[in-house]
Design a binder for these strands. Structure first.
Lengths: 348, 348
DNA sequence: ATGAAAGCGCTAACAG
DNA sequence: CTGTTAGCGCTTTCAT
């Protein structure tokens, strides 16, 4: 493979000159320039970006660590980040952590070793901030925490409006006349999950509704736990007339559970999901959901990170919260007056 | 940031020795080793992988270019590749081409400039093989063509059994009694699409069924074209009693079209999709599909590429074809005897 | 068993 | 305007 030197020799100039024409970093006379360009073409020369990085200490590369690209929420986010990165000539390392601290750290180290200019992290749930991230020096390569964060960690943050979104969802259900509303939560170590629960609680208390503990079911943001929690909820002596499921994967589990239990939605029970998926408008019934702007989340994350990298942004960590949007569909329906009576009678 | 030199100085040894203890590339006396390890810890030293690459000419990085991570078929594939790459200590660059040659080439160049050890490509549809790929020297960095390929391009190939899968789907429909089976094809420049059409044709001719041109509708492997093609099919004077949709995104469009047209599936029409998605078992009706092993496709691609990179595999290009599996669900149903009569009468 | 030294391919002063 | 030169951080003969 041809090198700068080869080109220089062929064109009869110095390496500095070749470098200058390639990077347009100094004026080079048209004649010399032409000769250099010739040589480059002739040798099918491609600069070695790594050698350049070694010198300039800029790799034009950022690393992104996500839980799992197979979780339908993340593809759009990754895409958002990648689009803005490409725009600015950056390239993306992708790593799936599966929400495991060990894998996360492994990728973190690999990406740092390969000298990324910045990192976009969607961290794993954990009660305490990971050691390696706490050790990360604020003046080193910038980290952007996307979608999730952890107090005690230094870095810019871009997330969706978890509290507001959950509040929208539950308020919607209340407006439809529901009074017994169950929630399937996420892992309590995740601020997201806690915030969604908070939105739920706020909506209830604003309307003077009681917070019943049996209606709050812990989930793990995966399909299996969504299934299990739904089953629990249905088994209650006084089951809820509506469920707010706090993420899409659990909604998948919830739908399966409903199907398996022969409970009809929305006839027997209403449903609202946090996170909207493309196919929610194709199921029967279609699923009411709180839409988080996944693509924008990813794009904004990359934008902020890039600003930080290039120094266009400095000072204390930024925290951006992107608004959510309720998309009402068929799965949430006004509670029929008789329905309430029926239930009471049934359990009288 | 600490360098090898710093460590060497601190430990009072040469850089060569430090390198040796890090890479375990030569025996180092326990005492010296200990001193070095100390220094490493003390300085929180992390080797610069790029500098190493410059010397060793191995980056332990591979680039993957896919059409769009947002297309539900690809996440599992990417995940498959990444898992095996991680296993072997490789790191992944990801690029979305949107099926555009220009973006594809741009990523190709960026990845090569950053000296990837190999490339996994899911190429864009095109009637002629791209110039830059045809120029790619077989003895350079290995390329693996996954899911799609193009004759005239040199490299290993890992794909699903397109012909077989389509054949399964259509045979299934024929067994159910369908005689007028429509197909929504993909872009004819894509071998995949052509092969799926071929599977369709073979299944028909094997059963002595005629190939009616009006039943073959061109799609583009995206939702919009799936929608449009379905509408066309329904408008036919003699519409099909079943449709074979040759990819998942178009199935999405097809379902919407059916919904909008008030045509009920499977009562009015049967449906089989090429590519299975998680939620196909949650719709109403659930969707019969040909399952391509997306994860295995990605994993196998990475495995073969890694073998090629490390020289464990040499010689002429390998071509692996992974089997597909038909997953019968509710959307495909035996054609009622009267139905056939009705249709005939209607158009008599 | 360890060290000295020569690069890998590129950029950036600094001269001229 | 163009060339010389000294590294960036690491690996790898080749001596010792």
């Amino acid at each position: 493979m041809a090198t700068l030197r080869d080109i220089a020799r062929r064109a009869g100039v110095s390496t500095a000159t070749v470098s200058n024409v390639i990077n347009e970093t100094a004026y080079v006379s048209p004649r010399v320039k032409a000769r250099v360009l010739m040589a480059i073409r002739e040798f099918d020369y491609h600069p070695n970006a790594l050698a350049r990085t070694l010198k300039t200490r800029k790799s034009k590369t950022v690393g992104m660590i996500i839980p799992d690209i197979t979780n339908p929420f993340f593809p759009a986010m990754v895409r958002g980040s990648e689009d803005v990165l490409l725009q600015e000539g950056y390239t993306l390392f992708l790593g799936n952590s599966d929400g495991e601290r060990e894998k996360e750290e492994r990728y973190y180290r690999a990406f740092r070793a390969k000298r990324v200019d910045g990192l976009i992290l969607i961290i794993s749930p954990s009660s305490t901030a990971p050691e390696y991230l706490r050790h990360h020096k604020p003046d080193g390569v910038p980290i952007l925490y996307a979608d999730r964060f952890h107090r005690g960690l230094h870095g810019d943050v871009v997330i969706g409006d978890n509290i507001g979104g959950a509040h929208q969802a539950v308020s919607h259900l209340i407006e439809l006349g529901h009074r017994r509303i169950g929630i399937i939560t996420g892992p309590p170590e995740l601020p997201n999950a806690r915030m969604r629960l908070e939105g739920y609680n706020r909506a209830l208390s604003e309307c003077g509704l009681p917070q019943e503990e049996s209606l709050v079911r812990p989930g793990k943001f995966d399909e299996a736990s969504g299934y299990a929690a739904t089953v629990e909820l249905l088994k209650l002596v006084k089951p809820p007339t509506a469920i707010f499921v706090s993420n899409a994967l659990m909604t998948l589990g919830c739908l399966r559970a409903l199907k398996d239990s022969g409970v009809e939605c929305p006839k027997d029970i209403s449903l609202v999901s946090f996170d909207d998926l493309e196919w929610f408008s194709l199921t029967n019934p279609t699923i009411t959901a709180v839409d988080q702007p996944a693509y924008e989340l990813g794009a904004t994350a990359a934008e902020v990170l890039l600003k930080r990298i290039t120094g266009r942004l400095s000072g204390p960590p930024l925290r951006k919260i992107l608004p959510t949007r309720l998309v009402p569909r068929e799965s949430s329906r006004a509670i029929p007056a008789e329905k309430g009576r029926d239930l009471k009678v049934a359990h009288a």
